[in-house]
Write a protein that binds this DNA or RNA. Structure first.
Length: 233
DNA sequence: CTTTATCAAACTGTACGTCC
DNA sequence: GGACGTACAGTTTGATAAAG
């Protein structure tokens, strides 16, 4: 969530932007870029489109800063503009192709990994990096496959860590709807991931062969019982 | 400092109405 | 009939203040 001091800094930035201070606008963009990009990416499922949407939204915001009534935070206001722009592009894309989006199961062409928040971790091995990247791809495919309203709410709530209130305000829907959509999005995501992972689940924590034999041998030894050869019996 | 109480926010499940 | 939106209630969780 946008914190305490950030809010007051945003107020200061707003004032300077209103006076036509380009430097202030630069600071504003640097501060909100990642969040806004991911919001747009959540809607559009395409990084290049998302980037364009964010750019357009910034231009709109800069030219219409006078319309910003400080009833909500600047972050929320910007978020709403980006979402509107992203949704507009989505509608435009649909009317242009005449199709209701590409196959939701597949990977979006040109899709790339969305950087998740708090991605900075302790040093990892190449194997850990690879498996984490694989999990991330799996998640992204599952999120991209969600129906649009659920995907948008999920992106704002879970990826952007926005509150129910902020999300509702951004999308112009009741808070209850945000809650239900998030709940259903999670359920759908769970089903989807379960479907993708179930063939692999049988193979986790392999417990056979050497490990099995070792435990059996140790237990029998501790109990003072004879350890017959495997084939005996 | 630790424990307890309180409150707000979020989560979850359910019921019901609407729309396709 | 299924998907979705809305409303509501019960539960869980996290933050914080008060008491011991």
């Amino acid at each position: 969530m946008m914190g305490r001091s950030a809010a007051s800094c945003d107020a200061d930035l707003t004032r300077r932007i209103r006076q036509g201070d380009a430097g202030a606008f630069r600071v504003l963009m640097q501060r909100h870029n990642q969040r806004l990009f991911r919001m747009a990416r959540g809607v559009l499922r395409d990084p290049a489109d998302a980037e364009d949407a964010v750019q357009d939204a910034y231009v709109l915001a800069f030219t219409r800063i006078d319309q910003f009534r400080e009833s909500s935070s600047l972050a929320t206001w910007l978020g709403r503009i980006v979402l509107n722009e992203a949704l507009r592009r989505l509608r435009q894309r649909r009317t242009m192709t005449g199709l209701d989006e590409e196959d939701t199961g597949g990977t979006t062409p040109g899709a790339q990994v969305i950087p998740f928040p708090g991605a900075q971790q302790a040093p990892t091995t190449p194997e850990e990096d690879a498996s984490r990247a694989e999990v991330r791809r799996l998640l992204e495919r599952a999120i991209d496959a969600l129906p649009e309203p659920f995907r948008v709410v999920f992106t704002l709530r879970e990826i952007e860590q926005m509150s129910v209130e902020e999300t509702a305000s951004c999308l112009g829907i009741p808070q209850d709807t945000v809650k239900t959509r998030l709940h259903r999005a999670r359920r759908l995501l769970g089903h989807s991931l379960r479907r993708q992972l179930s063939p692999d689940l049988a193979g986790v924590f392999p417990f056979a062969g050497e490990r099995c034999a070792r435990i059996v041998a140790h237990v029998l030894k501790r109990l003072g019982l004879p350890d017959p050869p495997p084939d005996a019996g």
